[in-house]
Amino acid sequence: MALTPKQQAFVNEYLIDLCGAKAATRAGYSAKSARRIAVELLEKPDVQAAIKLAMEQRSERTEITADMVLQHWFDLATADPNELVQYRRHACRYCHGDGHAYQWRDIGEFEEAKTKATQNKRAAPTDEGGYGYTTHAAPDPRCPRCDGDGVEKPFFADTRRLSAKGKALYAGIKQGRDGLEVLMHDPQKAWDNVARHLGMFKDRLELTGKDGGPVEINSTGGVSGLLAAARQAVGDADRSST
């Protein structure tokens, strides 16, 4: 049996995110009863066959397989945000200086500081703390200046050198009033998509009977009786929610 235009629209929308309720709403069905309608549509053999065919045709057109899609979501879900951005604490200038005096990177930095001090008529600095300062060194817990807390420093990775997982997580950058912000895709949403593609999530309707108890159904009517009773319960639930 051929699908109605609305049913076909549901099939097309369902392929976007595999969410029945959202697909039903986008296809033009009532938002209030979208979950119930989605369940009913997904139980129809004709709709199931149309979805399967559409997925197969899409894979042929794009040469994208379900395994490739699943791998993408898995990479995103398991990516480490520290690969993109880090909050670091490194040694302050006094942590590793001789006698915890100010430490210079090298003699060139020291000479430049002396020249500027002379030009500005300030006291010349000394190099008693020695040389070799680097931000790669960890704070010294004995440091009397920073008490071992070091100096905070945000770090942004070179996005050209990200791993496959890092590239999946990376969503661009944003320049705002407070500076540069690294944007990331949502790993939790990626986990949801992994679970959905593996069939761990099902579009289903939870029904309860009187006072929150189980739905009481007279089974003497056979399968048709069960379906009729279930639809009646759904209708009652929809009406009570309005």
Score class of each variant (00 low, 15 high):
residue 124 A to N: 11
residue 97 G to T: 10
residue 103 Q to W: 01
residue 90 H to P: 04
residue 93 R to G: 02
residue 92 C to Q: 11
residue 82 N to S: 14
residue 92 C to A: 12
residue 83 E to R: 01
residue 105 R to I: 07
residue 98 D to C: 06
residue 127 D to I: 03
residue 87 Y to D: 15
residue 127 D to H: 08
residue 91 A to C: 12
residue 113 A to L: 06
residue 107 I to A: 12
residue 113 A to N: 07
residue 85 V to C: 09
residue 101 A to V: 12
residue 97 G to N: 04
residue 83 E to G: 02
residue 103 Q to M: 15
residue 126 T to M: 00
residue 101 A to H: 15
residue 107 I to T: 13
residue 120 N to I: 08
residue 112 E to L: 11
residue 84 L to D: 01
residue 102 Y to W: 11
residue 96 H to Q: 13
residue 112 E to Y: 02
residue 95 C to Y: 02
residue 108 G to M: 09
residue 92 C to N: 08
residue 84 L to A: 04
residue 91 A to Y: 01
residue 84 L to V: 14
residue 86 Q to D: 07
residue 109 E to C: 03
residue 117 A to G: 09
residue 88 R to L: 15
residue 81 P to R: 07
residue 107 I to V: 14
residue 124 A to H: 10
residue 94 Y to N: 13
residue 111 E to M: 09
residue 119 Q to L: 14
residue 118 T to Y: 01
residue 113 A to G: 05
residue 98 D to P: 05
residue 124 A to G: 03
residue 116 K to F: 08
residue 114 K to I: 10
residue 87 Y to E: 15
residue 90 H to R: 07
residue 106 D to S: 12
residue 101 A to T: 10
residue 94 Y to Q: 13
residue 88 R to I: 13
residue 114 K to T: 09
residue 85 V to E: 12
residue 104 W to P: 00
residue 104 W to V: 00
residue 100 H to Y: 11
residue 83 E to C: 03
residue 89 R to M: 08
residue 84 L to P: 02
residue 101 A to L: 15
residue 91 A to W: 00
residue 118 T to A: 09
residue 102 Y to K: 09
residue 80 D to K: 12
residue 100 H to R: 07
residue 107 I to N: 07
residue 113 A to I: 05
residue 109 E to Y: 01
residue 108 G to Y: 01
residue 81 P to G: 07
residue 88 R to G: 02
residue 121 K to C: 03
residue 81 P to V: 12
residue 123 A to N: 08
residue 117 A to H: 05
residue 101 A to S: 15
residue 97 G to S: 10
residue 83 E to D: 04
residue 121 K to Y: 07
residue 114 K to Q: 15
residue 89 R to T: 09
residue 108 G to S: 12
residue 90 H to G: 13
residue 85 V to M: 13
residue 90 H to I: 10
residue 106 D to W: 06
residue 122 R to T: 11
residue 82 N to D: 15
residue 120 N to W: 03
residue 126 T to Q: 03
residue 97 G to E: 03
residue 111 E to T: 04
residue 123 A to M: 06
residue 121 K to F: 05
residue 121 K to P: 02
residue 81 P to M: 11
residue 122 R to F: 05
residue 125 P to G: 00
residue 106 D to A: 10
residue 86 Q to A: 14
residue 101 A to W: 06
residue 119 Q to M: 11
residue 116 K to V: 15
residue 93 R to V: 02
residue 95 C to K: 04
residue 80 D to R: 12
residue 90 H to N: 13
residue 113 A to C: 11
residue 93 R to N: 04
residue 107 I to D: 10
residue 100 H to C: 06
residue 100 H to I: 08
residue 115 T to W: 06
residue 104 W to E: 00
residue 126 T to I: 04
residue 123 A to W: 00
residue 120 N to S: 15
residue 97 G to Y: 01
residue 80 D to E: 14
residue 105 R to S: 02
residue 118 T to K: 06
residue 107 I to H: 07
residue 91 A to H: 01
residue 124 A to C: 14
